[in-house]
């Protein structure tokens, strides 16, 4: 039964890497959703597609080129939003299609789609190597440590950027750190659900968690719990039912969201007014 399945090395690696990714996506996602950067994750994921294509084209490790390109793309996106009159969602659209276009050109130049590329697009958690698992754990630990250390500053920045500036925070520097962390989170998480579905793990558990109407720490805790539950259940279900793990995980997060909405309607959880951030713009 479950203990037999857990004895498989690929399942152990998938679960460990999956839980690590669930934690960083939820934690980082709380700030991204509240700052109305929900589609930022999607934009960065598409830019990293360009990075992966560069790696495959040049014959170097695509994950590393994805990191470099995603970070540069994130910083470029931030600069575009800050120093031009292009609105947040338009800036994401420009960055997103630019990354995709570069990817498509390089893929066609290198002879078409490969299995490697598909694993980045749709996720391949059950095929993850021991080295990749170790890398995901190390990077996730780093992201969690930085987020914990800067939690108060990021919360202030997220709450109201101008108030943060008045309180003496270096808002520009913090914004760049934020973008780099978001880019690293996205690329680290690609192996789990793939480029096309990564924003689901960033956004959906957080929307569900916010429905509970709690304070910041409890909201992050609920979001992480829901995310881990979705990933673990998704991996097991996909194994038993022979389904794609990425899609199964995302469908479970959606099911949890619908369940939370139903519980709210039935008055089982807080009934305070909820207005989920839906557009991309600065909040101050």
């Amino acid at each position: 039964m479950i203990s037999d399945v857990l004895s498989y090395g690929f399942m152990q690696k998938a679960l460990i890497a999956g839980i690590a990714v669930a934690i960083i996506c939820s934690f980082m996602g709380t700030f991204l959703v509240l700052r109305r950067y929900s589609l930022f994750g999607d934009g960065i994921a598409h830019v990293s597609f360009g990075g992966i294509s560069i790696g495959l084209f040049l014959g170097v490790a695509p994950l590393w080129t994805a990191f470099v390109v995603a970070i540069l793309g994130g910083l470029g996106l931030q600069k575009l939003r800050q120093s031009t009159k292009i609105s947040g969602d338009a800036a994401v659209a420009v960055t997103l299609v630019s990354g995709l276009a570069i990817g498509v050109i390089l893929i066609s130049a290198s002879g078409g789609f490969s299995a490697d590329l598909f694993s980045f697009l749709f996720g391949s958690i059950l095929l993850i190597s021991l080295e990749d698992t170790a890398l995901i754990i190390a990077i996730s630990a780093g992201i969690v440590v930085i987020l914990l250390a800067l939690q108060k500053q990021f919360l202030h920045l997220t709450f109201n950027e101008e108030q943060a500036k008045i309180a003496g925070l270096n808002v520009t520097a913090l914004n760049y750190v934020f973008v780099v962390l978001a880019a690293v989170t996205v690329v680290t998480s690609m192996r789990l659900v793939g480029i096309l579905l990564i924003s689901a793990l960033i956004v959906i558990p957080n929307i569900s968690a916010m429905m509970f109407g709690r304070g910041f720490k409890k909201t992050v805790g609920i979001s992480i719990t829901m995310s881990i539950f979705s990933v673990v259940t998704g991996i097991f279900l996909s194994y038993y039912l022979n389904l794609a793990p990425s899609g199964t995980i995302v469908i479970i997060t959606v099911a949890l969201l619908l369940g939370t909405l139903a519980a709210r309607s039935a008055g089982l959880i807080s009934k305070t007014s909820i207005n989920i951030p839906s557009t991309i713009s600065h909040n101050s």
Binding site: T30, L34, K152, L155, H156, F159, N160, Q163, I166, A167, G168, A209, M210, G213, R214, G215, F216, K217, K218, T219, T272, S273, I274, N275, I276, P277, N283, S284
Partner: peptide
């Protein structure tokens, strides 16, 4: 400057911002 307290006419924030009163006051430390 960071030792000045400032309360504007209105602070814009998300109505569902998941922060308690204590969370907000702690930002001032």
């Amino acid at each position: 400057l960071s030792l000045i307290g400032y309360v504007p006419q209105r602070v814009e924030f998300e109505p569902n911002f998941p922060a308690t009163v204590s969370d907000i006051v702690s930002m001032g430390i």
